[in-house]
Structure formats: structure tokens, C-alpha cells
């Protein structure tokens, strides 16, 4: 079986799995990293949102063979380490506002939020309503308003 080497949450990993297995299943079923959730498998629900080289992406739609040894994947489990803290400021904002209901969508929401804040910062501006309207992550519990508030709050803390 082919071998694939890439980095996850700061460590290099090597897995034995077919080239076309999507990264979400390599993370969840092979590496037992279960923070990224399955909600559709077709890059729609965004429950699996994680980061690759600091940018948001959806591992359900990336064959493991697309990754090389230098590619750094960050899942929700590795997010605090990116700021050398126990919790990322966005997670703190989430806690403060008690955003989660069932919690199933929340790892993806937080990873999307962090990437969004970084993106608008790189563009030299701050989060607008239009940015928030553009977030595609589903929350079937409907805690959208608290998500919007927490992103603004988290951005201020980042």
C-alpha cells in the first residue's frame, strides 16, 4: 500500500493508505483525530473545516496523496498550539458567549472563523456583516447569532 507523509498538528505522520482516500478519513479513521466532523463528505456543510498551511480547507474533499511532507494540517485539536496557549482566543470567545449547542458543527465553525479573521486582516480590514453572511458552515441547532458575535469578539482578542 502507498505511504503518505505530511504534518498534522505539529508532527510528521506517515500513513499506509490508498492515494484517493480523502484526508478526512485518514484523520478520523486512521489517525483517530476526531475533531473534524463529517456532515456531508462533499465540501458543503463545512463541519470538517481544518487548516492546511494556515488556510481553511475541507479534508473531506482532498485525496491524501495531494499532501506532501512539508504540508502542515491543523485540526481543532492543534489550534491552541498555533498560539502557544491552552486555548486559542477564538475558542475563548466561543466559551465566553456559550456558542455551542449540540457542538457537532463547532470545531468546523471555529476553524473557519480563525481563517476568516486572518484573511480579512491580510486584506488590511476588519470583519464586516458581508463577511459573516458569507460563512457557509451549517449549524442545524441554529446558534448562528452567537457565532457571529463570537467571531467579532474573537477577532478583537486575536
Amino acid at each position: 500500500m502507498p505511504q503518505h507523509t505530511f504534518r498534522v498538528n505539529g508532527e510528521s505522520v506517515t500513513v499506509d493508505v490508498e492515494d484517493d482516500v480523502r484526508l478526512l478519513w485518514v484523520l478520523r479513521d486512521v489517525l483517530k483525530i476526531t475533531g473534524p466532523k463529517y456532515g456531508c463528505g462533499i465540501n458543503v456543510c463545512k463541519a470538517c473545516t481544518s487548516h492546511v498551511n494556515g488556510k481553511a480547507f475541507n479534508p473531506c474533499s482532498v485525496p491524501v496523496s495531494d499532501l506532501g511532507p512539508e504540508d502542515e494540517v491543523t485540526t481543532i485539536e492543534g489550534l491552541p498550539d498555533t498560539v502557544d496557549a491552552d486555548l486559542h482566543p477564538m475558542q475563548e470567545a466561543w466559551l465566553e458567549r456559550d456558542v455551542a449547542q449540540c457542538g457537532y458543527c463547532q470545531p468546523g465553525q471555529i476553524m473557519a472563523a480563525v481563517a476568516l479573521v486572518k484573511k480579512v486582516r491580510a486584506e488590511g480590514r476588519s470583519i464586516t456583516d458581508a463577511d459573516l453572511d458569507g460563512i457557509r458552515n451549517i449549524c442545524r441547532c441554529g446558534t448562528y447569532t452567537r457565532i457571529r458575535e463570537a467571531i467579532r469578539d474573537g477577532a478583537a482578542r486575536m
Partner: peptide
Amino acid sequence: NRDDALAAVTGRKQFTM
């Protein structure tokens, strides 16, 4: 706040899968 909020935001909350 919810008792499982920390588990939820850190990805440690465990669902069936």
C-alpha cells in the same frame, strides 16, 4: 454556560462516530 462547552470547542466532545 454549558457544562460541555470546553469539550465542544476543543474537539474533545465525543459523539457516536
